[in-house]
Design a protein around this nucleic acid. Structure first.
Length: 454
DNA sequence: TCTGGGGTCCTAGGACCC
DNA sequence: TCTGGGGTCCTAGGACCC
């Protein structure tokens, strides 16, 4: 078990590494999952929306029927609204109340069967999320922010699994700790969370999913397998529609079935994932709660208003996406060694193409040029969606500007120097790299990317 | 479900190196 | 010239998650 030594050691400095002070090595992990977060944020901003059906759409322009549902409040879900649904479908099930009021005045539309539509406002949601995270950070020693509305906390050193009397029954100290955390979020930020408490991450996740919204579910150590037993296989993190079907073909329908399955067979069928799912279903999960670290790739994509084979539209879209990705990379302080595109053709075929460079760069003009070159392969094809992405990221430039790196940086000449690559010098830089970039081969006097000191 | 956008991880095959 | 195994890197696709 990785890290078991320091896991407990910090509780009492006098303890020997790896020696538990009280016989238990069970961690206490919280999974905090904000309820319908985008919709909750909209209600926070406009209290009028509280308790009403609210649909938040992405790519949605107020008054139109384009875009898709990002989040729907529980009141809206009761009308069959689901996330990822087309707004047009949502509107047919739940008409827009404000449009109805505006157009019909006293219409025959039943007001109770209409809802509010808002478009995604990430900046605002980020600010609310930040308020929540500030509270979470105060409450845990280690934390992993999974997304804008979800985080794992390791609170092993803040509370305990001990059972204490409470009201008409008893509860664990950890349950009280989590309840208090949930109350703080509700009172101080004005949105609600569902919280799962368990001895590991995957169980905590399942616990928080188990009772929404505003739920609190505790799975004590030793209860994990029993708790999982009856759950549908899809409740296990990592099982989506495809694997659920395949598992079903093997006669595995519940988490309990999975826990009792033949691990060899799972390994054959699903590779490493199979083993992982098996262990999760048995309640085994040694992953430590640790921060997420640097991103691995940055990507921007957008659906075209309608499928088209018009080269100008496609090229212009790629240019724009390339600029946006380049800006993101600058914001993040990321250099990239791979540039790629994604081309989705009807009905929904996803094609990706990528090219790696011989050294890390931060060069928007290059993203654009490589993107356009890769796009050429799809000349004449109908396209419904395009994406541009950079990967193989390095954050050397940012590190370099931080003093106090322990090594005195022989990597420096490598990390920062690609930054200034000018657009017109880029000609030789798009040579595909096959295998190791062993032969930079600056041809006819042109510098390759590995010539950093231009 | 006729499908939005931003990510992660895994796999498989091929190129290339030693 | 043939055979071989280990390892890394690259590209493309796929499943999954929020």
């Amino acid at each position: 078990m990785a890290g078991s030594g320091d896991e407990r050691g910090s509780r009492d400095r006098s303890s020997l590494p790896g020696v538990s002070q009280h016989g238990s090595t069970d961690r206490i992990v919280l999974h905090v999952d904000m309820d319908c977060f985008y919709a909750a944020c909209e209600c926070r901003r406009e209290p009028l929306l509280e308790g009403e059906p609210v649909v938040v759409g992405m790519g949605y322009e107020p008054g139109t029927d384009s875009g898709a549902v990002a989040t729907a409040s529980y009141e809206a879900r009761a009308f069959g609204i689901e996330s990822a649904q087309a707004i047009s479908v949502a509107l047919s099930r739940l008409p827009n109340r404000e449009r109805a009021d505006f157009e019909n005045g006293e219409s025959d539309l039943d007001r109770a069967e209409t809802g509010y539509y808002r478009s995604v406002d990430m900046e605002y949601y980020q600010s609310v999320s930040e308020d929540v995270r500030a509270i979470l950070r105060e409450s845990a020693d280690r934390m992993r922010e999974v997304s804008i509305d979800e985080a794992y906390l390791d609170v092993t050193e803040r509370t305990a699994w001990d059972v204490v009397p409470s009201g008409d029954g008893e509860r664990t100290l950890a349950a009280g700790f989590a309840r208090h955390l949930g109350e703080r979020i509700a009172e101080e930020v004005g949105v609600t969370a569902s919280i799962g408490v368990a001895p590991n991450m995957s169980a905590a996740k399942i616990a928080s999913d188990h009772d929404k919204p505003d739920g609190l579910v505790v799975i004590a150590p030793g209860e994990v397998r029993d708790f999982f037993e009856p759950l549908s296989i899809e409740a296990v993190h990592g099982v989506g529609p495809v694997r659920a079907r395949e598992l079903g073909e093997m006669g595995i329908e519940t988490a309990g079935d999975l826990a009792g399955a033949d691990p060899g067979e799972l390994l054959d069928r699903f590779g490493e994932r199979g083993r992982e799912l098996y262990e999760r279903a048995r309640g085994n999960d040694d992953r430590l709660v640790r921060p997420k670290g640097d991103p691995k790739s940055l990507n921007r994509e957008s659906a075209l208003p309608e499928a088209t084979s018009d080269p100008d539209t496609c090229r212009e879209t790629v240019r724009e996406l390339a600029r946006e990705v380049a800006d993101r990379a600058i914001e993040e302080g990321a250099l990239y060694r791979t540039i790629g595109i994604k081309v989705v053709t009807p009905p929904f075929e996803v094609n990706t193409r990528a090219r790696s460079l011989s050294g890390p760069v931060q060069d928007g003009a290059l993203i654009e040029r490589v993107g356009l070159e890769l796009l050429e392969e799809f000349d004449g094809e109908k396209v419904r969606k395009l994406g541009v992405r950079v990967a193989n990221l390095e954050f050397g430039a940012a590190e370099q500007s931080n003093l106090g790196n322990w090594e005195n940086a022989s990597g420096v000449e490598n990390s920062g120097a690609g930054v200034g690559t000018d657009a017109d010098g880029a000609d030789s830089t798009t040579e595909p790299v096959s295998g190791r970039p062993s032969e930079p081969a600056p041809r006819d006097g042109q510098a390759s990317l590995t010539d950093f000191d231009r």
